[in-house]
């Protein structure tokens, strides 16, 4: 493909991280860019959907109510009760908000005209990860007390004392650095890479369409690929929302567990 592009003369400008920078829609503030509006839109959409689905709650559910209850039931059963255990009910609202928020913002990546996954700007994953981070440490500290929690995290029972010199820093780094880091990075990187992939095939298709007569045919393949990858992206977006919430539930489960 690159050889073909070179032959056609004018350079193809591949999508880059610059495609993720948006100019403010109005004013001159970083708070009026497209991702911020998408984030607000997601909140409005989620709220509208669940208020509508729960407003006329009936024993024989309407289709909308059924859809809303399925999502809630999934988070409550699979991510709440099965992972956290008996105390799960306290955390269901948090998990549910996280799951729907991440899922909606991810799905914006393949919604026509919106076409940008909010989570591919690193600031959004970082801020929700901060909520999770504060949440699971706070739960654990309130349950066990600060000193006992630190002892539980850093000193695993049943190993000889000198080995602690090697293991304790690693345990500490895992709980306080690597966990939040991987949580945010995984979501960000998946959304970033997915959006870039879609950009490559659509922009490439567009470029091929503008090229010479014979090459035009190949743009068809490029666009077909872009559509196929959109379905693939749909899977990734749902999976990432699930993984993010699952890991949050696991961290909370670790925090409410009686001992480490």
């Amino acid at each position: 493909m690159s050889a073909m592009l070179n032959r056609s003369g004018a350079g193809f400008a591949p999508p880059s991280s610059a495609d993720f920078d948006f100019k403010p829609i109005f004013g001159n503030s970083i708070f009026t860019t497209k991702p911020v509006f998408l984030c607000f839109l997601s909140v409005i959409l989620i709220a509208t959907f669940f208020i509508l689905s729960a407003r006329k709650a009936a024993i024989v559910p309407s289709r909308l109510q059924f859809a809303g209850e399925s999502v809630y039931g999934f988070v409550r059963g699979t991510l709440g009760e099965a992972v956290i255990g008996p105390e799960f009910m306290r955390f269901v609202p948090f998990l549910f908000s996280l799951f729907t928020f991440v899922l909606t913002n991810n799905l914006f990546g393949i919604v026509p005209f919106l076409q940008f996954p909010t989570m591919s700007r690193i600031g959004f994953p970082i801020s929700i990860t901060l909520c999770v981070y504060v949440c699971y440490h706070w739960i654990a500290i309130r349950k066990h007390g600060f000193i006992k929690y630190m002892k539980d995290v850093c000193f695993m029972p049943g190993i000889p004392a000198p080995v602690y010199i090697i293991l304790t820093p690693v345990e500490f780094a895992t709980y306080f650095v690597t966990r939040p880091l991987t949580l945010a990075m995984r979501l960000f990187a998946n959304m970033f890479a997915g959006h870039l992939l879609l950009l490559i095939f659509t922009l490439g298709g567009e470029y091929l369409l503008k090229s010479g007569a014979l090459i035009k045919i190949f743009s068809l393949f490029s666009f077909t690929f872009a559509i196929g990858l959109s379905f693939f992206e749909f899977g990734i977006q749902c999976l990432q929302a699930y993984i993010f919430t699952l890991l949050t539930a696991l961290y909370i489960a670790g925090a409410v567990a009686d001992e480490h």
């Binding site: 059963g77 699979t78 991510l79 009760e81 099965a82 992972v83 956290i84 255990g85 008996p86 699952l246 696991l250 489960a253 670790g254 409410v256 567990a257 009686d258 001992e259 480490h260």
Partner: peptide
């Protein structure tokens, strides 16, 4: 510790829980 504390109220949930 995540592994052994989750006693579900639903008995058939345990296999699913461990898979998750």
């Amino acid at each position: 510790s995540d592994g052994d504390k989750g006693k579900s109220s639903l008995p058939n949930n345990n296999a699913k829980a461990s898979a998750i």
